[in-house]
Design a protein around this nucleic acid. Sequence first.
DNA 1: ATATCCCGCCAGAAA
DNA 2: TTTCTGGCGGGATAT
Length: 942
Amino acid sequence: MLTPKKYNAVKKRWKMSSTSLESQYLRHTTQTTTSNHKGNVFAEPQALTKTPRKASTQGTVLTEIQTNMGPLMTPTKGRETGTGEPWTPTSNLKMLMSAASPEIRNREKELCMDSEGGDAMDHELGEEGEKQISRKEKSLGLLCHKFLARYPDYPNPALNNDISLDDVATELNVERRRIYDIMNVLESLHMVSRLAKNRYTWHGRANLPQTLAKLRQVGEEHRYGQQMQQIRQRSLEKEFDSDGEEKENEEVEGGEQGQKEMFFVELPGVEFKAASVNSRKDKSLRVMSQKFVMLFLVSTPRVVSLDVAARILIGEDQVADQDKSKFKTKVRRLYDIANVLRSLKLIEKVHVTEEKGRKPAFEWTGPEDFPSVKETTATTATAKRKLESRTSVDNCAKNLFSSPGSKRSFTRHPSLIKLAKSIQEDRRKINSAPTSPVKNDSSSSEFFPTKMAQLAAICKFQLDQQSNKVVDRTPKSAVTVTEALPAHQQKAVKKPGAPQPPVLTPTEACASTVHLTPRAQFTPQPTGAMSFHPAQCSPLIPILLPQHQGGGPYAIYMHPSSLRPHPLTRPQPTSLAVRSMTFEDKTGRSPSDVTVQGNSSATNKLPTSSPSALKRVCSERTSEESPSKAKRIDPSTRDTSPKLCEILQARLKARRGGLVSSRPSPRALHLDPEFVNTPGSSVAVAANQTLEQNLETFLEKEEKVATSDSEAGLTPVRAVPLNPQHLHTETLIPTGYLIPISQQSLFSYKDHNTESSKAFTPTYNIYHTPTAGSRPPPIQEFTPTSLPLHRPPPSSPFSAQGHRFPSPAILNFTLQNLGLIPGPGSVPTYSPGTGHTPEHPSSLPSPLPPHLGLHQRGGMVFVKPMSPVPVQHQMTGPGGQPLTLISLQQMTTPKGTALPQHSFFHTPLATVVTTSHGHTAPAGTKTVYIPQRKLDVTAEDT
DNA sequence: ATATCCCGCCAGAAA
DNA sequence: TTTCTGGCGGGATAT
């Protein structure tokens, strides 16, 4: 049972959670087995509520305790409905949902009330709490989810995005130590930056693209890719040397170069975080996290096995394995990091099977196409400069370290550390100052760029998402896809996949095997595997148009964003097929990016491209290749699609032209002009239109407001494109949400002021509105609560706690509560199999209270992408206006998504990725046969 | 048995 | 000194 040691420790420590913990512990011990614990913990919404006071950190211990207790206890006790079910993702979701919803409901109350009172009471109950909480419920990943649910992916810079560690720890009911782990990882991605002692600033994913681009750059510089390969090879074959040449460089290089140590990569433009970084050794988590991410970004198949990563992180091989313990420790840390990254949806767990056996590994599921370094750098630099000029010292200081071009810029050299420190200190002081420019401000300088960036990001998002959709959709089908995988046989397999639309149980979806063959690339796949062309395009369009035309003023796009977590969502059968579009990189630079999709296809050795393989690639593409497979949805759609695309494009152009004439926006809007041009992009285009409008509006405003540099405005925009990465998922904004097409709306309020301008992003509105309150009335109508969104349970679960901003998850919950969306429990039903996505259609209309309806006219509502299910129906708005819902499915497939295959790979290894969702693990797998060594990757979702 | 990874001690760095 | 951070690794859980 309990180890005395631990027990004592617990007692001792108990500063924070104390009693409840203790009791839990005890219980825990008693119970030993687990079978049922459901996670009650989360359940407790109230806990979340903000109790808090952040102000006094320490002093408040008592208070904290109380608060804490409440939450803890409560949950435990109450919960247990005990379904005996073993823990399942679904169940968990259910719990979360249930928990969350109440919270949401109460939110208002909470706000009003003082937080404290409520808390106190709870804790008593808590004491009893019993059930042990399953370990999973306490996992870092879950905690991270909860944490993330509290903040918008793209925060409004104008608002206060401060994060108080104490508050977070209290609200989430966890020890601070745990929060540090999360913060360190987020900080490594520049999603947060440390302001001061207990304070961090939330940046969300706004900087993610740049960060990733930079990390990739640094990773390339360090030749991590090569190192990885070497290690892999070595392990595979015991040949140690395989490439002597490199190894030395690499390793040595990595190790020695000064970096050996680890250095923390900073982001130039945005905010740097500074100080915190250098202090302590900085050894680990932060740096490790960056390195880990770099590995994904430079490896060809975007799969990194744990041991390889650990080896590289350790520094090297030099020591080789001797240090078992060291290795072990490293692995532990990697798991910690991986959990956070998984929460961010940047990676997914998979298993790589080699001849030896199956090894744990992770696959990158984040954005692939963020701007290349060069681009980024350049852009960034430009933007930066502007900023800098305006800004002051801070910037200067930063610049020191970062010079755009050189790697150095990003990396902090040890020798510079001191200098940096001093600078940072200064900076800190400045910041802390009441008036610190940095923070609040919306000082034009900062503000402006930021905005731009956001815009860009948003745009990017949309594009990405669309692209993703393609992928995603597959996801559900992923399973099927996988099957298809076997490249060789792909076709055959694939077919099966086709059916998927029909139904999949969520669970089933699970397992899929993907084969990645790196070399595939090489292989000339004449066939064209490359079907990828975007041209084919978007099925969406078709759908859209028609419905759209409905005249309904609003068009709603739904994406299911991240399905991956749960298969449940599954792809929809819907007719809408989304497709995957591939983007090509404009740059064309790295094979990796661009090709991703292509790669995937490429991956499959066979020309046909393995549809399956790539989840990313959409099935659609595949369809091209193998018509038969057509699995996807309706062929008919496909057929039409090209035409539709053309039409759409034409329309867009026309539209655009009009717009353009008026303003520069065009370029601004789109990040990727090419994209637009490409036929394939049609979908994107459609989506973008709205966006464009918004942007335009935005820009206009900007112009007025900002006025200043016209150029700047433009430039930034362009820069923006960089951000593409966002795709990954989820949260992001616009895409997944319902977007009312009505033009007028959103921006109307822009006028207001800077803030409003920021608001322009739909996302913002949504998020902020509720909380911030800044939003215009119309929008408010849509407060999260009212919104009818539905999303698949998976992602949302965590949101429960009090969040400042309503997280998408929350919205979803809310919707569910409303009945708009099917409850979690029902989720399974959603499965495509069910047929159409029943839920929406039926549910929406009737259940919705009138007010709830999407009708919000002026405002936009975003829904998180949740449901994978393609929903289509028309709704009638309150006004009687018809609404069309379109679901774009995107799924982020976790697994095999894109496998970029770069030729990088020396070895011709074939990789098989197996993903299993849910428990069903093996399901899809089929063996694939692989010529040489194969790597099997299995993803598990959960 | 192996894979995960929670927990919290404890030391170094700030305040 | 006290508090904040966060490295680290034991050992409990999950598979």
